[in-house]
Design a binder for these strands. Structure first.
Length: 437
RNA sequence: CGGGGCGUGGCGCAGUCUGGUUAGCGCGCGUGUUUUGGGUACACGAGGCCGCCGGUUCGAAUCCGGCCGCCCCGACCA
């Protein structure tokens, strides 16, 4: 992308409405613009990040055999009356009427809808277990939206639903999903910790929330360093193996982890000092096993091997995709701006032409840009070097290729690593190899 | 939903209490000169229904009433 032709409105000053660092940086870096309280437009660079996060989450869902589908944002009130939640959900649900005065709502979640879809077509135990997910916009009419994209009213969420024939199967689905979550967060460059949680309005028996560490997180968290050392990869655990899932779940639940409300100082103190970890955390995911709550209320049953019928055991699993954009920034930034993890950066590299109009600089930049393609944001603007440096740091590209007249004539570029600040002068080929390699 | 605050060029703000020149300042934007590896300097210039509606007044950004929007603290939440 050429910066001179991009909708990437960086700001020198912070808009007054932004309080927390991720909100400020998202506005300043031109990732989003607020359209109404808690509702944001995603500008090109921000949208790329959102896509990248969604892609990783999707890959990890697919990897455990969950099927992607897409359910609508607007739902009929009738479905929610069946489960009893239309009345129960409260003012957070955005209720709408169409021209025929039919009651609709903008979905805050999809348990009812997916249960309806399953009951329409799934009749036999032979068709289960199944897990499905979608990545779709949700709306919760928060009384008080804040923290920018971290607590908006409209947000992008990955929500998954599992259907099993019995509790044993449902527990496996639950554990498998937990593994997928830990892998997703790890790939996003985040340290995540699962913690036992209350089930809230979703209801159910078993629930964990996933907290990621960020210095500006909303709650204090305490945990065992063991979480940092676990290998969540395919090599570490096979998601198809019940034994591996049991071992994994054992690790997740046997080590100490708690937010300040549930913190047990004595238990924490019992850990060896070098294993005690403490920090601030942000909730980015939540999983629930709630049994037959919806299948029973909505009369979804399947026949079993012996000819009787049962209500399938269900679970639902959410990841706040748009919230993660803010959460990642909270976890990874400095005074100059954002520091994107390589996996989700909008661009792998910023290509800084320090002297547009200079034949050597232009020529070298054009050839580098052609080689980098969509991986690079080419700063071809007629701006001072300082402006470009500052914008590149603010945007947080993992790499910066700096092309100035001095180096260009000598066939050299400077490569800067955003996270460490390390710079080195090297040949264009070597720089490309590092960035693309 | 309780409490507090704010709406003035794209952004950050002053002016409002105490009504009265052409409504200011910084940044940004445009043109020119200058500068050329960390937000350069100078000059000139464009850009404002002062959130909206109504009222008071000879006169309203400023006073009064209503409405709308946004932010912060708390309770609540992926």
């Amino acid at each position: 992308m050429r910066l001179s032709r991009s909708l990437l409105p960086t700001l020198k000053e912070t808009p007054a409405e932004a309080q927390i660092v991720s909100h400020r940086l998202m506005l300043r870096a031109g990732l989003v613009r607020q359209t109404a309280s808690g509702i944001y437009a995603w500008l090109p660079a921000g949208y790329r990040v959102l896509h990248n996060i969604a892609r990783i989450v999707r890959e990890e869902q697919d990897a455990i055999g969950a099927q992607e589908l897409l359910m609508p944002t607007i739902q009929p009130a009738e479905l929610w009356r069946e489960s009893g939640r239309y009345e129960g959900y409260g003012k957070e649900m955005l209720r709408i009427r169409d021209r025929h005065d039919r009651e609709l709502l903008y979905g805050p979640t999809n348990e009812e809808m997916i249960t309806d879809l399953f009951r329409q077509s799934v009749r036999s135990y032979r068709e289960l277990p199944q897990s499905v997910y979608h990545i779709q916009w949700k709306f919760r009419d928060e009384v008080r939206p804040r923290f920018g994209v971290m607590r908006g009213r409209e947000f992008l969420m990955k929500d998954a639903y599992s259907f099993d024939i019995d509790q044993a199967g449902a527990v496996l689905s639950y554990r498998r999903m937990m593994l997928s979550y830990m892998r997703s967060f790890q790939r996003l460059g985040l340290q995540a910790i699962p913690m036992a949680a209350d089930t809230g309005p979703i209801g159910g028996d078993l629930s964990h929330e996933f907290i990621i560490l960020a210095p500006t997180g909303e709650s204090q968290v305490f945990f065992d360093a063991a979480f940092e050392e676990i290998d969540y990869s395919q090599g570490g655990f096979d998601a198809r193996s019940p034994e591996d899932l049991a071992r994994f779940y054992g690790l997740m639940t046997s080590h100490y982890a708690a937010t300040d409300e549930k913190h047990d100082a004595a238990a924490f103190a019992a850990l060896a000092p070098e294993r005690r970890r403490e920090g601030r955390g942000i909730e980015v995911g939540h999983i629930f096993y709630f049994g037959t709550k919806y299948s029973r209320a909505m009369n979804f049953s399947v026949t079993t091997a012996d000819g009787s019928s049962v209500h399938p055991e269900m679970g639902s699993y959410g990841i706040g995709v748009s919230r993660l954009v803010g959460a990642v920034i909270e976890a990874s930034h400095d005074e100059a701006g954002i520091i994107w993890p390589d996996a989700i950066a909008p661009f792998r590299a910023a290509l800084l032409n320090l002297k547009p109009g200079d034949a050597a600089c232009d020529g070298l930049c054009e050839s580098l840009y052609a080689r980098l393609g969509g991986a690079a944001l080419y700063d071809d603007r007629e701006e001072r070097a300082g402006v470009k440096f500052n914008d590149a740091d603010l945007l947080g590209h993992p790499w910066q290729i700096i092309v100035g007249p001095r180096g260009a004539t000598a066939g050299k570029v400077e490569l800067k690593r955003r996270a460490s600040g390390a710079r080195e002068e090297l040949s264009p080929e070597a720089a490309l190899a590092k960035i693309l390699g």
